[in-house]
Design a protein around this nucleic acid. Sequence first.
DNA 1: TTGAAAGCGCTAACAC
DNA 2: GTGTTAGCGCTTTCAA
Lengths: 344, 344
Amino acid sequence: MQKRVSLKDIAEKVGVSTALVSYVLNGKEKEARVGEAAAKKIKKVAAEMNYQPNLIARGLKFGKTHTIGLIVADISNPFFAMLARIIELEAQKRGYTVLFGSSDEQLEKSQNLINTFLNRQVDGLIITPVAGSQSQIEELRNKGVPFVLIDRGFSELETNVVVTDNHDAMYNAVKLLIRNGYKKPGIIAYDTPLTHMADRIAGYKDALKDSGIRFNARWMAKVPYGNYKEHVTAALDRLLNTNGRVVDALVFATNSISVQSLKALHARGIRVPQDLGVISFDESDVFDFFYAPITYIKQNLQAISENAVQSLMQSIDSRTRKYIRVTVPSVIIKGESSNRRKTP
Amino acid sequence: MQKRVSLKDIAEKVGVSTALVSYVLNGKEKEARVGEAAAKKIKKVAAEMNYQPNLIARGLKFGKTHTIGLIVADISNPFFAMLARIIELEAQKRGYTVLFGSSDEQLEKSQNLINTFLNRQVDGLIITPVAGSQSQIEELRNKGVPFVLIDRGFSELETNVVVTDNHDAMYNAVKLLIRNGYKKPGIIAYDTPLTHMADRIAGYKDALKDSGIRFNARWMAKVPYGNYKEHVTAALDRLLNTNGRVVDALVFATNSISVQSLKALHARGIRVPQDLGVISFDESDVFDFFYAPITYIKQNLQAISENAVQSLMQSIDSRTRKYIRVTVPSVIIKGESSNRRKTP
DNA sequence: TTGAAAGCGCTAACAC
DNA sequence: GTGTTAGCGCTTTCAA
C-alpha cells in the first residue's frame, strides 16, 4: 500500500510545523490566528497531495473512534439485515461507522464479539442479547460502556433498551382471531427466556383470559432455536393431528417459525383459514405468495433502529448512568389468513 | 467509560518497565529473556486487572488494523446479507473484523464508503462495485490498496474478482427451457453495464444461437435499478399482452426481479408453466410458495465468500500486484416452473 | 535480564 | 503568528 501522506509530509513541503497544518486542516485557523498566506498554502498543498486524515491516530489521541459495534443474532436473517441497514444509515448520518457480527444466539460468540469490539475501542454497542447473557451485559454496565439492547432485553436488568411493544402486539393479534370466531388459538414460539418471547407469550395468554377463554397448555409449543425447523414441523404434527385438532388457529411468534410452518401446512394440505386461522409475528416476502395472504404483525423497524442509535448517542455523549427504555408500537397488516371463521 | 488498564498501569503496579510487560503479554518472554519471577508476576497482575490490549494503538504502531471493509449494494437484500454472513465468518477465522456499508448502487455512496474505510485504515476491501465506479476502483489499484471485487467486475479492469460463472449459468438455464419445448424465451434484467448482467445476457443470447433460435430484441427487457418494481411490472405488460404473447418463457436475472415478477404474474392470473415457463437467477424463500415451485440458479455463496476473503488475505499479505480472477460454478435447482411445454 | 526512548499520526497547551 | 513538545498505548531497538 502506497504510503499515505501525513501532516508531517505537508508540513515539510510547505516549510511549517505540523501544528499549523493541523490547525488549518481542522478549520481552526481563526482561533489559532494562523497567517493567511500560510493557511492558503497549506490548504493548497494538502489538496494537491490528497491528504486524508488517519482516523486511527485521531482515535488514539481522543480515546474516541466514532465506531459502533452491532451484534445481531444472524445478519442473514432478513429481520436483522433490515435493522442493520437502518442502523448503518442512522449511524452514518452522525459520522459513525459500524462494525458488525452475528452471535448465532450463542453465548460464547456473543462474548467474543463484545471483547473484540471493545478492544477495537468502539464508542458503543448495539446488541440483540443472547439468552443467558445477563452477566455479559452487566459487565458492560459495570465498565460504563455505552450500549443499547435491541429487539429484546432482560426484565431483571435495567439497561438502555429499544423493543416493540410485544405484549400489546400479540394481544391484539390473538384478540383479532377470537373476534373472528376462533375458539382454540394456539401459539408456536421459541423456547427462550428473553423478554421478546416472554412478552409475546404473555400477550397471548392475556388475550385469552380477557376473552374468557381458559388457556390450555396443549395449545402452546416452544421450540429450541437450534434445529428449529424439525421442531416446528413436529409441533405442528402434534397440534394438528387430524382426528380432533388441538387448535383452530395459530400465531407464529417469529417470521422464521412462520415460513417453516407455512411450508409444513402446505405439504399437509391444511387449508388456511378454513381449517386453521393464522397470524405471524414479523413479515416475509412469502406471505404474499401463500394462497391465502398471511395476516402479520409489522414491527416498526425504522423507529426501533432510530431510537436505538439515538439512545446510544446520548449514552456516548452524556456519560450518565441513566438508562432509557423505549417501547415501539406495531401494526397488524390484515391478509386473509385470519378471516372470520365460518361457523360449521 | 471506566478507564481501561494499559501496559503502563501494569508496569507500575509490578514495578517494571512497560517493555517487559509487553514482551511477556505477547509471549515473547523467551526471546527477550525475561526473568521468570518477573514474568509470572506480570501475568498474574495482568489477569487480576483484566488487561485487554488496545488494538487501536497497536494498529497505529503497525500500520495494520486487522479490519476489512465490506461494501455491498444493500445489506438488507438477502443475497448480500448471506454473503456478509459468510464473509464475517471467514474473516473472523483469520482474526479480522468487518466494517460494512451499503452503496445502494450509488456512485457517491460508494466513494464515501471507500474513503471512510480507508481513513479508518482498513487493511483491505471487499466490494460489490457500482456501475460506473471504474475510476474509484482504479484509484484503489493505483494506491496499492488490497481489495477484491465480488459478484461483479469490470471487463476492462484487471483486478482481484470473484464471481459466479454467470454466462455458463444463464446459458444452461435457457438451454433447459429450450430443451423443454419453449420457442420464445425472454429475459428481464437490470440495465447496467456491470459484468454480472452483461455475462448473463450474453449467456442467454448464446444459448439461443446455439439452439438455432434467432434472438428477437423484443424478448428482452432491461429495467433500471431505481424503481425497478414499477419497471418490471411494465415490462411484463409488454412481454405478455394477451393477444399474441411476445414470449413463452422468461428468465429473471436476479431474485428481486423474480419476486416482483411473480407477484405480477400472480395478479394477472398467468399460469406457470402452462402459459409461461420461468427460471430465476438466485433463490428466494417465496419460490417454494408459488403454486408452481420455481426453477432457479443457485449460486455457491459459500465458495464465493471464501474465495473473496482468501484472495484478499493474499493481497494483504503479499503486497504483490498480481490479480486473481476466480469463477465459481453454480447449479440449477429444478422446480416445476420450467417443466416441459405441452405442445398445443 | 531490564529499562529508556523513539516513533506510529494527530492534537493542543504553551512558549517564543 | 508560529513552533516545540508532550502524550494517546503499544512495540522494539539499543544500551546498561
